[in-house]
């Protein structure tokens, strides 16, 4: 494709490249393919207590499921909610794909997807996801996680990060408008979202989309709050944008008092990758 300025770019084709011939696969190819597929499978690991109750066939009773996708959303929960020490880590999901670092186990600090449960109110569940889940794993992740939860009376809230560059609008976005929230909810969601609905032609992709699709089809009340930020790394201003999203959950999820800057700094710095761009 040639751009306005004349340089030729090799672009990702929107068409799926189909191998014209049916692949003549020998047994070895097939085995490699099968092994790769097995390796890419999503696994959920639960604490002994939870897996015991799951084994007996019962699902996890859950009234509120709070899912945070991305560093800002996860950081927000860490600072404002999970800091209160009334939460138990009850499990994690392990995902292997092309972006998983060789040698780094699932315990690696950067690629985690952890489930927490409230100590006093065990029907409130939180999941923080900061790892990359590949496109072919999103559906499976959602199916597996929601298969564990009891669907009756379930309310799902998803907090998610996005770049303002992905936001389409006919108006010019001036620098001061970001970060801002947009919401998207399923037909079963009866409440009033705390912010404006996401306007067409904007769409949501990734894990929030997979969760919304699942919940729309299975009629689960779900709302996604997508935060559009103009800062690439996690930052405290973006994290605070999520605050109104939790006001609806007031009864079950309490917001901690605003943390000191030191606490915030810890979360902002941990993902501050050293860049060698300007050496």
């Amino acid at each position: 494709m040639a751009t306005f300025f004349g340089e030729v770019l090799s672009v990702y084709s929107r068409a799926v490249e189909e191998d014209e011939e049916e692949l003549d696969e020998n047994e070895e190819d097939e085995e490699i393919r099968r092994e790769l597929e097995e390796k890419r499978e999503v696994h959920l690991h639960w604490s002994p207590e939870v897996s015991e109750s799951l084994k007996s066939g019962s699902k996890l009773p859950c009234s509120d499921f709070l899912l945070a996708v991305g560093h800002n959303a996860a950081g927000f929960l860490s600072v404002y909610v999970l800091g209160s020490e009334s939460w138990d880590a009850v499990g994690h999901a392990s995902v292997w794909n092309e972006r998983s670092r060789a040698g780094a186990g699932t315990t690696s600090e950067e690629s985690v997807c952890v489930f927490y449960r409230h100590k006093n109110n065990p029907s409130v569940l939180i999941c923080q996801t900061t790892c990359y889940i590949a496109e072919d794993q999103l559906f499976q992740w959602t199916e597996k996680v929601f298969d564990v939860l009891q669907h009756r009376q379930l309310n799902v809230t998803v907090l998610s990060d996005s770049s303002v560059a992905e936001y389409k609008t006919s108006d010019y976005l001036c620098g001061s408008s970001a970060p801002f929230l947009r919401s998207l909810h399923t037909a079963a969601f009866s409440g009033q979202p705390v912010c404006q609905s996401l306007e067409q032609p904007n769409i949501i992709t990734g894990l929030p989309a997979a969760v919304l699709n699942h919940c729309e089809v299975h009629r689960v009340a779900t709302v996604v709050y997508q935060c559009y930020s103009d800062v690439t790394g996690p930052d405290s201003v973006t994290m605070e944008t999520f605050k109104p999203a939790l006001t609806k959950l007031g009864k079950s999820v309490q917001l901690n008092p605003p943390p000191s800057t030191d606490v915030l700094r810890k979360f902002v710095r941990t993902t501050n990758l050293p860049s060698n761009l300007y050496i």
Binding site: L138, F139, E199, Q200, I203, G206, L207, L212, N213
Partner: peptide, 30 residues
């Protein structure tokens, strides 16, 4: 209805064919 399958990359958005404010907030799937 929907075709709900793991063969498609998940995406979602509000009503792509909206004509007025009332039908804008309606979730649509891949």
């Amino acid at each position: 209805g929907y075709i709900h399958t793991d063969c498609l990359i998940p995406m979602t958005g509000n009503n792509p064919y909206t004509t007025c404010k009332d039908d804008a907030e309606e979730l649509h799937t891949p």
